[in-house]
Nucleic acid binder design. Structure first.
Lengths: 183, 183
DNA sequence: GACAGTATACCGACTGGTCGGTATACTTAT
DNA sequence: ATAAGTATACCGACCAGTCGGTATACTGTC
């Protein structure tokens, strides 16, 4: 039964499912193995430590973000703020599964510096997109930070806004970008 | 030896110290008890469950925020945006210990809805302060969200800005508030 | 004011269970 | 044959919560 084809992918899928079920904090390797239809040994073979598994999950998560963003990119007309806008639209797009995963991952990573590194790096890349947008630094930063606030608030469910208010806010954000970009 | 006076406070202090040492995710009750100079039983007597302890810690954390804010309040001239400004200045003020605690608490709470409730409530109160400030809703929300983004970024150490840039951003935020408030 | 009875605060050994990781044997493709 | 890949059984550390017990303070009674 060598080569179950791509056990790694199977396991990552299962791990995601487990996280969605019980949260990353309560994700046990046995549970993941069971759900993946793989033995504990098989899991350990593919991911020597739990952190290694988590790391791959996060990497995959980030990869998915870029895929989504590149898809969004096609709908946006040329211009210096294009990347910036695509990133923001991607971040703002509602996506229950992603949010669920995200909050779990956040919780699991917050006290594990080497896991956080991946997220940090991804975030840093966004700064590049801001800097080439031509928008004045302070304004661009504030817009980007507001999007962060919206994201984190959504992940942690601490947003004190209703659906209607959020729509208004998102609209205003996009308006601001256009206004700042055309200067 | 009855009445160790205020074991609860002692234990809470110890719990904070432990969190600062190893992170909330790795805070064990034995560790807290040891550091507080209290037995396991004594701890459990005062806080029947670990969640109860965490809850008190968060409540205390939030209380401290309001104390800090009220102190800030004195330095701010009268005006409709006063509360809002004080809140933002408090949130933006650098405070290593608070940030450390905050990120740990965040991590511990993210998957425990009843712990999150406290934070959610505190956040909701801030919305009230926005709404009485007279600033146009969308603008006020964006400013507030940007502050959130700054806070979360600082807590999770994902901010892609250097110290100088952060100062600029903070200045711009305060400028925006003044500008929006005088309309 | 002394004593019994009760409530409060705390102790620390123990338990039940979880979970990351290890050891090792089995299976199949080349 | 051998090495990659998978399975099963197990270990040991950790840890939240339990429980029987102790010591001190409070309260009512005679």
């Amino acid at each position: 039964m060598r080569q179950r084809k791509n056990s790694k992918e199977l396991i990552l899928d299962a791990a995601e499912a487990v996280v969605l079920e019980v949260g990353a904090a309560h994700m046990s390797l046995d549970h993941v193995a069971r759900k993946a239809g793989v033995s504990k040994g098989g899991l350990m073979y593919n991911f020597p430590t739990k952190n290694a598994l988590l790391k791959e999950m996060i990497a995959r998560f980030i990869r998915q973000y870029y895929i989504n963003r590149d898809k969004k990119l096609e709908d946006i007309e040329e211009g210096p703020a294009r990347l910036f806008k695509a990133g923001i639209l991607t971040a703002l797009a509602p996506d229950k599964k992603r949010d669920s995963m995200g909050s779990s991952i956040l919780a699991a990573s917050a006290n594990e510096p080497d896991l956080m590194d991946l997220l940090r790096q991804a975030h840093r890349n966004m700064l590049e997109d801001i800097l080439v947008s031509g928008i004045k630094f302070e304004r661009a930063a504030i817009i980007s930070l507001a999007v962060d606030g919206l994201m984190f608030g959504r992940l942690l469910k601490t947003l004190p806004f209703n659906q209607n208010q959020i729509k208004k806010i998102e609209k205003e954000i996009m308006r601001l970008i256009d206004k700042e970009a055309e200067k």
